[in-house]
Amino acid sequence: MPNSLDLPGRPEDTRVVVAMSGGVDSSVVAGLLKREGYDVVGVTLQLYDHGEATHRKGACCAGQDIHDARRVAEAIGIPHYVLDYEQRFREAVIDRFAESYLHGETPVPCVSCNQTVKFSDLLDTAKTLGADALATGHYVRSAALPNGHRGLYRPVDLDRDQSYFLYATTQEQLDFLRFPLGGMTKPETRELARTLGLMVAEKHDSQDICFVPSGRYAEVIERLKPDSVEPGDIVHVDGRVLGRHDGIIRYTIGQRRGIGVSVGEPLYVVHLDADRRRVVVGPREALMTRRLHLRAVNWIGDGPLSAVPEAGIELWAKVRSTRPPQPALLTVEAGEAIVELIDGEHGVAPGQAAVFYDSPETHARVLGGGTIARVERSLEAERALRHLETGSTAAAAE
C-alpha cells in the first residue's frame, strides 16, 4: 500500500493539491487521497500542443489527457483546475532542450520540467490554494529525517524508479511534496485504479519526452531553430575526414548506427564539436569516461556541499536513468563538483544528469546531482581529441 502522507492533523482538515496529468498514476493518487478523506484539489497543467495532441497516444499534459483528468476529477468528486502553462513550458523546457542539443549536448528535459514548471510554479500555485502538500504520481519515496526535513529515496518498484529525474528537487520543495505511489508497484497501482473505478485504469503510460511524439528529436529542434542547423564534417579521432553530415543534432554520443560513414570497423560517435560543426567518431574504447565535471549541482544530502572533505566522499552515481548506481567519488575543486566513476562508463555525454545515491541498494537515498558540463575520457581519447582540436586551429590560422 502507499506511504502515509505523514502530515499533521486530520485528513478532512488537510488540503492536498494533486498534480493530475490525466494518466493512471496521478489519477490513483487523487482517488486514493479522496478515499482517505483528504480535502483534495486536482490541478492539470496544459503544457503544449493542446489541439494537435488531442487524439495522440503517449501524450502528457495536453489534449486527451486534460480531458481524462477532468473526467476522473468529476467521477471522484473533487474540484479540478486546468492552468495554461504553454508559454512557461516553452521557455523553461522546450527552448532550453533545443539550445542544449545545438551545443552538442544530450539534455534531459524531464529534469527541467520537474525543476521549473512542476515543482516550482505548480508548487507555488498549490500554496496559493491553501494546500498543506502537493502530491504527485511519481514512483519515488520520501520520508522524515532526524533533522526535521524529508529525504528522497528510490521506490519499491525499481522498474518504475523516477528518482533520476527528480534529483534537482530542492529541500524546501521536498518538504512540501508527497509521493503516495512510492511504496507500490505499477501492477498494484493499476489494480487500485480498477478498485476505485477509474476509467483510466488500462490507459497506456505516457512517453518520457512528451513534446517529441515521434521520438525524432532532430525534427522538433529543426522546426524550433531552423536557421541553426548547419552541415559539417564527420571526422575520425585520428584526424581523417570521413564524410559530411547535415546537422550535429542528428547525432548523440555513443551512437553506433546511422552515422553515415563506413571504414571497415565499428565506429561510434565520440564527440560533438558544435563550434566547428564536427561529428567526431572512433572506436568504442574512445567512449570510456571516468571523470565528470558538473554544473548546476543540487545537493540534498546531510550538510552543505561545501563541507565535502578535500579527499572527497564515496557514493554511488547514475549517469543514465536505466542503469544501476555505480561506485563513484565526489570531490569539490575550486567550487566545481567533479565525479570520478570508479569503474568508468561508456558513452557519457554533456547535458546528461549525474545523480548521487548513498548506496546501491533498493532503498537508497538520493543525495542530489548535477548536469554534466564536461567529460574526461580515456587518456588516449583525450590526447586524440586535443590533437584534433589543436590541428584544426593551426590549419585555420595558416
Rank of each mutant, 00 (worst) to 15 (best):
R276Q: 10
I342A: 15
A364Y: 07
I78Y: 09
L166F: 06
R56H: 09
V270W: 03
D233N: 13
I76V: 12
F211E: 12
L145F: 02
S321Q: 07
I259D: 01
I300F: 03
A364G: 11
V332R: 07
P327S: 11
V29K: 01
A168R: 05
K203Q: 15
R216M: 08
P180V: 04
Y101R: 14
G58D: 03
E333I: 14
A274H: 14
A135G: 00
L152V: 06
E52V: 02
V319D: 02
P180W: 04
Q173E: 15
A59W: 02
A353Q: 14
Q255P: 06
G239T: 11
S112Q: 10
T54S: 12
V375W: 04
E230G: 12
L341C: 07
P327Q: 05
S163L: 09
E86M: 08
P79W: 03
V16D: 02
Y217M: 14
Y167N: 03
G42V: 04
H387I: 04
D6H: 05
R35P: 01
V17D: 00
E340F: 08
F97C: 01
L129K: 00
D68M: 09
P213N: 09
P155A: 08
F165V: 02
I300M: 01
T393N: 13
R90K: 09
E188K: 08
G58A: 09
E99Y: 11
L287N: 06
D25A: 01
H138R: 07
A373M: 08
I249F: 00
I372Y: 05
L287Q: 05
T393A: 12
L196S: 06
M1I: 06
V308I: 15
S27N: 00
V200Q: 11
T14L: 03
N147I: 03
Q115D: 13
A131R: 02
G351Q: 08
C113Y: 03
A53E: 15
R374M: 10
